[in-house]
Each structure stands twice: as structure tokens, then as C-alpha cells.
Design a protein around this nucleic acid. Structure first.
Lengths: 204, 204
DNA sequence: ACCTGAACACCGTTCAAGT
DNA sequence: ACCTGAACACCGTTCAAGT
């Protein structure tokens, strides 16, 4: 009974979802080998196809890495948005929550962060790379409207917040700050401390 | 008259300074190819030696890259220290000057920054990777002593400053912020603005 | 349409051999 | 001591060929 399965692709010659299978394999290998150590041939091997099959789905290795980075940008945005939404206690707490989400994501996806913000790929497609920034911008805008943040250009304040969180995340994942990344509570404490200092300033 | 030249190595077989010649060649190639795109064989080619000669000076490719990163950390420290020393107008201005130096270095040495803070190499040898941080720490300490900065743990405030400057630098070199990197004045303006916001805070 | 195998021009690293 | 050439096990990418 040679029926065509609609939900499964057990046929195994065309397994139908090779694009996503390759991305999944690449993500696994990225975790163990790091970017640069990832080879397209090994990705194909893990996915169970010949080493030229990936070229049916991605025009080259860079395109695969770019797709991975794109995925990462979306997930980071979602994690930040969810964190901010879960805190109805005002802009300061939302900013801190979004920062904790940012750094937590960076710690558990260090290699993908390198792809997202490194030189491996060009700038992300317009309208998407702003998504993580957009979360911060929204929080800052609501904070200005509520009179909690200074009435400066919101974009400028959001840039300050982004820079600080990004730098903190990169220095922590690069092992430059003495933070135990395996302890989520300690990590959140560190991020909260830095975020609070940015909110209230260094002066006086 | 087969005298041995003491100052020059025009002999050309043993050219005496291959270690540094390799580092110089690697730095040039890094600028044009980016990290990852740099090949040890091409470095040797540029230096005019066989592709195995580098192994007399560096145990492997990672060791060459690590040496390059080490150099970069020292230069960054020197640039920051010089910038801070040239401004005797108090801790706030010194912090801003050091920040401008940090971001300027990052912009003109983007590839080496990736080596310095990326996953390509392990953490820098102890006592050296703290040098850039040490400049910030000194400024913060003097600011606390002068009553200009809050009397918190100086290390904590310096971490905030470092995170912000590092993040700003990385986002700018990754083309994530709309900054014209070819205009030094505009760059300094942007950095000053961010640094000032950190010093005085986002609140109120 | 989708996948494969052979082929090309590269890598990093090792090792016996040369001066 | 310092450097070389051949060799090995890999790469990314292309292309004619298979189903």
C-alpha cells in the first residue's frame, strides 16, 4: 500500500524537512565545536545526507550560519519580551528582567551569540535585527511616559541599556568577569546590580 | 669577508626575527580576511617561509592567534591609559576619554577585538587581561576618593563602565548601531553621550 | 525536484630529511 | 638550531550524473 504519508517522512530518501534537520544538526555541533569549528560536511553527516545535499537548501556555509543567527535573534527577542511581560512592576523592573533574559540567553547560547553579533555574517536583514532593541525601546518609552526615566531621546537611552547588557553578556561569556555562569541566581544578581547602576547612575 | 651581522638579518635563510614577522603578517591578513579566514599557510607565504616554518615559533595556529590577542590587550591598555592621562579634568572626563579610546581601538581593530574577547582562544593569562579593566578601576577609585562617584565597591562600578563601553564597541563594530565609524568626531560624540548617561544614570 | 560521487583547490599538522 | 617537502586527513564548492 504505497500511500504517501502526509505527517511523517519515513520514506528516508526525501525526508522532506532537510532544511530544518540541517539547522538542528548545525546547532548541536555549534554547541560542541564552536563557530569556525563547525563544518558543513559534518552537519550533513549528522543529518544523514551526502555532503553536497545542504547546497539544495542553503547557497553556502555562510547562509546556513546566517539562518542560525536569524533564529537566534528571534529567540532572544521572544525571551526578552516574555521576561518584560511577566513583570508588571514598572519600567525599572522590566528593564532589569529584560537584561537578565538577555544575559541568560547569551550564557546558554554563547556560540550562537557569536554568530549573531560576530563577523561571520553580514548585518541581519532590516526590520529583524532591531527586535531585541525594540523590547528595550518600548520599556524606555513607557518609562519616559510615566516620568520614571529622563525625557531624553528614548532611542538614546535604549542604546545605553542595550550596550550595557550586551557588554555584560559578552564579557561574562568570554570569562572576563568572575561570575559563576552555572548558578542562575548569582547571574541574575549580577545583572540586576549592573542594570540598577545604569538606571541610577554612577555619580554622587 | 663572512662576518656575522649583529643588527641585521639580511642573510635571508635564517632571518632571525621570524616570530615577529609572522605576527606582523598575521595582523595584516587578519585585517583583510577576518579571523577564521586567516590561514597559517598564507601567513607563512606572506612571511616568505615554508608552511611548516611557523611551527618553530608557535605550537599551532591557536597559539599564533593567542599571541596576537595578547598584543592587542596590551595596546588597548596603553591607548586607554594614555587617553586617561591626557585628561586631568577629573574622573568623569577621564572615564569618558578612556571610553572613547576603547571604542576607537575596537573600531580600527575589529578583527583583533574578536580574537581578544571571542571564543577563538582561551582566557588571557592572569595578570594581563585585567589591564584594560585596571585603567577603569583606577579612575573609578580616584572618583570615589574625590567624592564624585558613589562610595560603592569600586570594582562593581568599574564593571558597569567596562560592560557599557565593551557592549557599545561590539555593537558599533557589528554595525548594529547607526554610527558612521569613519568619522572620529561623530564616534567620540556617541561614546561621550553613552558614557555620560551611565555616569549620571537613566532615572528621573 | 532532490540527492549523489568524483574532482579541485585549499586547509592544519606531523615527520623524516636536509643545511 | 632552523627550515623544507612529502604525506595525511580533513575542508568548501562545483558539476555531471543518477532516481
Amino acid at each position: 500500500m504505497p500511500d504517501k504519508p502526509l505527517n511523517a517522512a519515513s520514506d528516508s530518501y526525501h525526508h522532506g524537512d532537510l532544511g530544518n534537520a540541517l539547522l538542528a544538526a548545525a546547532e548541536t555541533l555549534l554547541h560542541s565545536h564552536g563557530p569556525g569549528g563547525l563544518s558543513l560536511r559534518e552537519v550533513a553527516r549528522v543529518a544523514g545526507v551526502s555532503h553536497t545535499a545542504p547546497y539544495r537548501h542553503f547557497s553556502n556555509k555562510s547562509a546556513l550560519l546566517a539562518a542560525l543567527a536569524q533564529r537566534g535573534l528571534e529567540r532572544l527577542h521572544d525571551a526578552m519580551a516574555a521576561a518584560a511581560a511577566s513583570v508588571p512592576h514598572g519600567p525599572e523592573q522590566q528593564l532589569i528582567a529584560a537584561g537578565v533574559a538577555y544575559v541568560s540567553f547569551a550564557v546558554s547560547h554563547a556560540e550562537i551569540m557569536q554568530l549573531m553579533f560576530g563577523p561571520h555574517i553580514g548585518p541581519a536583514p532590516v526590520g529583524t535585527e532591531k527586535d531585541a532593541f525594540a523590547v528595550l525601546l518600548t520599556i524606555v518609552e513607557s518609562g519616559i511616559a510615566a516620568g520614571v526615566f529622563r525625557a531624553r531621546d528614548a532611542g538614546e537611552l535604549a542604546q545605553v541599556a542595550w550596550s550595557t547588557m550586551h557588554g555584560l553578556a559578552m564579557l561574562i561569556t568570554a570569562n572576563r568577569l568572575d561570575v559563576d555562569v552555572s548558578d542562575p541566581a548569582a547571574l541574575a544578581e549580577r545583572v540586576s546590580s549592573v542594570a540598577s547602576n545604569v538606571i541610577y547612575g554612577l555619580s554622587r
